[in-house]
Simulated assay, not measured.
Amino acid sequence: MKCGTSPVVANIGGYAIGLALSFFVSKKLVFRSNGRFVEEGLRYLVAFFACFAVNLATLYIAINEFHLNANLAQLLATVTYTALMYAVTRWFVFRSASPLLKHER
């Protein structure tokens, strides 16, 4: 937004830049998954777009319905995305790497 873009454009740009990097970091460092790259990559894209849709909805509602400051709305949308994405990545994307799920098998 410091570059003069709208909150929505800034939000989309930031998430687009971080998508590939976050997949590799999550796969290798956070969840230490040895699962199939393509399968997990496709699930990650599904998870990303679902969580990002919630992020944009949160941003829209925070600005247009609750009339929050754009920076505060961005923060709220980011926190919402981060918490949801972690949960979905743990239980859906890298499910074979989840220690809790391994005990259930």
Results as ranks from 00 to 15, higher is better:
residue 94 F to W: 07
residue 46 V to P: 15
residue 17 I to F: 14
residue 36 R to C: 14
residue 16 A to Q: 04
residue 69 N to A: 07
residue 46 V to C: 14
residue 37 F to Y: 06
residue 9 V to D: 12
residue 71 N to D: 11
residue 100 L to Q: 09
residue 105 R to T: 07
residue 8 V to A: 14
residue 81 Y to F: 13
residue 17 I to S: 15
residue 52 F to N: 02
residue 61 I to M: 14
residue 103 H to D: 08
residue 93 V to E: 04
residue 100 L to K: 06
residue 75 L to H: 09
residue 90 R to E: 04
residue 70 A to F: 12
residue 87 A to V: 02
residue 73 A to V: 00
residue 99 P to C: 13
residue 70 A to E: 15
residue 42 L to V: 10
residue 48 F to V: 02
residue 86 Y to D: 05
residue 71 N to E: 11
residue 26 S to W: 02
residue 102 K to Y: 01
residue 45 L to E: 04
residue 39 E to P: 10
residue 48 F to K: 02
residue 35 G to D: 05
residue 3 C to W: 12
residue 89 T to K: 10
residue 22 S to L: 02
residue 66 F to L: 12
residue 13 G to E: 06
residue 42 L to S: 10
residue 69 N to K: 09
residue 19 L to R: 00
residue 31 F to M: 03
residue 16 A to N: 08
residue 48 F to M: 01
residue 14 G to M: 06
residue 42 L to C: 08
residue 73 A to E: 03
residue 14 G to P: 03
residue 38 V to S: 11
residue 88 V to G: 14
residue 7 P to A: 05
residue 93 V to N: 09
residue 35 G to K: 01
residue 99 P to K: 15
residue 27 K to N: 00
residue 8 V to Y: 14
residue 16 A to C: 13
residue 76 L to K: 01
residue 75 L to D: 12
residue 53 A to H: 03
residue 95 R to K: 15
residue 2 K to F: 10
residue 18 G to N: 13
residue 13 G to W: 00
residue 19 L to M: 04
residue 104 E to H: 11
residue 82 T to H: 08
residue 99 P to D: 06
residue 58 T to H: 11
residue 95 R to S: 14
residue 37 F to E: 08
residue 44 Y to P: 02
residue 53 A to E: 04
residue 79 V to G: 12
residue 80 T to Y: 13
residue 14 G to N: 04
residue 19 L to N: 01
residue 83 A to R: 00
residue 92 F to H: 00
residue 105 R to N: 12
residue 100 L to N: 08
residue 43 R to K: 15
residue 52 F to P: 12
residue 3 C to P: 14
residue 9 V to Q: 15
residue 34 N to A: 05
residue 94 F to M: 03
residue 12 I to K: 15
residue 94 F to I: 03
residue 43 R to L: 04
residue 40 E to S: 05
residue 53 A to R: 01
residue 58 T to W: 06
residue 38 V to K: 06
residue 81 Y to C: 07
residue 67 H to R: 13
residue 77 A to L: 04
residue 45 L to W: 04
residue 64 N to S: 10
residue 37 F to T: 03
residue 96 S to E: 13
residue 67 H to E: 15
residue 65 E to R: 12
residue 48 F to G: 05
residue 43 R to N: 06
residue 25 V to R: 06
residue 72 L to V: 05
